[in-house]
Simulated scan of single mutants.
Amino acid sequence: MSPLLEIQGLRTVFRSAGGDIAAVDGVSLEVPRGRTLGIVGESGCGKSMLSLSVMRLVPPPGRVAAGRVLLEGRDLLTLSTSEMRAVRGGQVAMIFQEPMTSLNPVHPIGLQITEAMRAHDPRASTAELRDRAIAALERVRIPAPTRRYDEFPHQLSGGMRQRVMIAMALACKPKLLIADEPTTALDVTVQAQILDLLRDLQAETGMSIILITHDLGVVAEMADEVAVMYAGRVAERASARDLFGSPQHPYTLGLLGSVPRLDEDRDRLLAIEGAVPPPFALPQGCRFNPRCPFAIEACTAAQPPLEEIEPGHFAACIRAPVESAVELAR
């Protein structure tokens, strides 16, 4: 079966005095139907910019300079503004990072949900839209949805606001949901509830999900496939089982080694030295080589391509497969 979404060679740049700076640089990914793709990496690696590029919401002076985004074979980057407006919400929906700033503070949440519905069904009556919005709130397990319909964002908790964002995103039954850090700033209990909700809704509707996060625990629980991004590029891509069981890129090893584990007794966690380089000051060769414990002189010669190391397991590293991967992770 063909994938629902195909991203091919996507490159998003920002114009500067020194020329174009790439925030997303040649990313290629696939999202199967009814499956979840997790995208992980440190802040500044290009995860959110990738999602905004798919939705064609890149803020100026940014622009998508190259590549294709195929939704069921239809290139979203070639659509007119009105055609793309019909795709957003109707076929592809997005949950943004911070619900408090994504929701309009001066309008009741019910009005904001019905506004999205009306955009895709202008002939529906106000009463019909109200009933559908209340049903959407009930669907995401918000208690007393009829009363909540008339409340403002500041009257809801962080978890409730996140549920409103999910209700709004799913109001028009999209085929693909992009969830950008859907559990940020939520306590562990509410985070588990949100993840359970997304999983149940996916099983109910058959939608695909792109889950963007820096939390490896969330990825391990939710994702079928995982792509690890670093400095605007995909460093490693594999099934969740293979990536967590046998990581092949040093950056992935570092991320996994920095997570505390209950089944191991370690004096200290592994730390990745340094920080993600800014897109205007990328190192020569492999972009991870200044922070990589496996780096050799050849790593500075050229940017390694994303190659298949094992069936379905891709890594952009000339040292892969890393023989001492398990030892480094520990």
Rank of each mutant, 00 (worst) to 15 (best):
F294C: 14
V92M: 02
L270W: 04
R74E: 06
P278G: 13
E323D: 14
T189V: 14
I178V: 12
L186H: 13
I134M: 04
R233G: 08
L195K: 03
G232Q: 05
E323Y: 05
D224Y: 04
A192C: 07
R330Y: 06
P61S: 07
R35W: 01
A65T: 15
D242S: 11
P145W: 00
I113R: 04
E138D: 12
A66L: 04
R15G: 15
V87F: 02
A135G: 15
D215S: 09
V31S: 00
V40Q: 06
E128A: 11
G159H: 08
L4W: 12
F314R: 14
E6H: 07
V24A: 12
I109A: 01
P143S: 03
P174Y: 00
G217I: 12
M117C: 01
I194A: 15
L52N: 12
F294S: 14
G46C: 05
V31E: 00
P59F: 00
A316P: 05
E204I: 14
R147T: 15
G285T: 03
Q303M: 14
V326W: 14
M229A: 05
A135L: 12
T114Q: 00
K173A: 06
F280M: 04
G18I: 02
G159D: 05
R266T: 14
A271F: 13
T81Y: 02
S125K: 09
G232H: 02
R291H: 08
A227G: 01
S51C: 11
S239P: 02
S157E: 06
H120R: 05
L306W: 09
R56E: 04
Q303C: 11
P321V: 05
R15V: 11
E323P: 08
A136E: 07
I309C: 04
T184P: 10
Y251F: 10
A298F: 00
G254V: 15
I210D: 02
G9N: 04
V140E: 01
H120A: 01
Y230C: 13
A203D: 08
V326G: 06
C45N: 10
L137R: 07
F14Y: 07
E181S: 10
V106G: 08
L186G: 10
P278Q: 07
P304E: 02
